[in-house]
Design a protein around this nucleic acid. Structure first.
Lengths: 165, 165
DNA sequence: GGGCTAGACTTGCTTAATGCAAGCCAGTGT
DNA sequence: ACACTGGCTTGCATTAAGCAAGTCTAGCCC
């Protein structure tokens, strides 16, 4: 399959789209930002075929967007896929997609729509940098998403593995 | 090929990604936002196969993101593809991708990087809603992109066909 | 200590999407 | 009358995606 066609074009949008615009990739990153880390969890949440998931995760690790981290599970070592800083920084892309999708597409059956909450002030805000409610910058650690078709509880965004925080 | 798998899921990001995240779609919309309207121009600029382009344009028209508009070419009628409001509103997605791509990907050979200019104040700004230079909201009509690997001249964004403006 | 189970993958095969080349059609310029 | 251009469509080969089944590791349970 070799590296995607657009990954080294001069246009940054082309390069970003070459990686992020592959099928499943944005969905994987969405869920990773919501805290999913394990192979099986991605598989179950997205309904993606396992070979494709394996392929996508490998590509995202190679691109430095996810990082394979060993973790301890009842005494044994397993792997999980954690966001890197680069992975966390696709958040604005997800925000933009959420806004556009909310505005210009329709779900099959009406459900409560997704909401972004600024935990610091408790207000619902439009996905973006600044809170509609209090006007402050929404820091990632203070942002939570409500996805009512899954659960009424807000989900705080996952923090990236940082070699530095 | 039927309508993409994710287009009616409850998550707006999934719906947006189901449409925009198809291969070529973001690139087509990028170029449409930069003023490309004709089939042949898209084909030449993107190097996309004609049957795929035909398919994508049809899908984007169906989704209400582009609109097929007849135009006059030396006496005969041809078709062009113009942005609708929905198409113009993918701009924030393109901005977010541009920022991410600039930050986290590398071109094959170093070229001057893409810049966004706020024509009102003349400053270069980070792609986004607010101008870094003057602090004002950047309106679409005041925004121009410089893509130095193609030309040093700024390109003003295309305006959508509006049934109302 | 033998079988069971969970997580994380591979492998093989089928179906769908992509890419390439060629062809078509209407109007236009020569 | 003929080549040409823009905008397609059709056919066929190649590549990617989806599905099912199998593998491997290592605890865990009795």
């Amino acid at each position: 399959m070799r590296t995607a066609p657009q990954v080294s074009v001069p246009c940054p949008i082309g390069r970003a789209a070459g990686l992020l615009g592959e099928r499943w990739t944005l969905l994987i990153l969405r869920n990773a930002n919501l805290g999913t880390t394990r192979f099986d969890a991605f598989r179950a949440e997205l309904g993606i075929a396992e070979n494709i998931l394996s392929n996508r995760l490998a590509r995202l690790v190679e691109a430095g967007v996810l990082m394979r981290v060993p973790y301890h599970d009842g005494g044994r070592t397993r792997q999980e896929y954690r966001l890197t800083t680069a992975g966390a920084e696709v958040l604005p892309v997800l925000h933009a997609l959420a806004v556009w999708g909310e505005e210009h597409t329709k779900p099959a059956e009406p459900t409560g729509s997704m909401q972004v909450i600024h935990q610091r002030c408790g207000q619902v805000t439009t996905p973006g940098r600044v809170c509609d409610g209090c006007g402050e910058l929404v820091r990632r650690e203070e942002e939570a998403w409500v996805r009512p078709w899954l659960s009424p509880d807000p989900i705080i965004l996952a923090s990236p593995v940082t070699t530095g925080t």
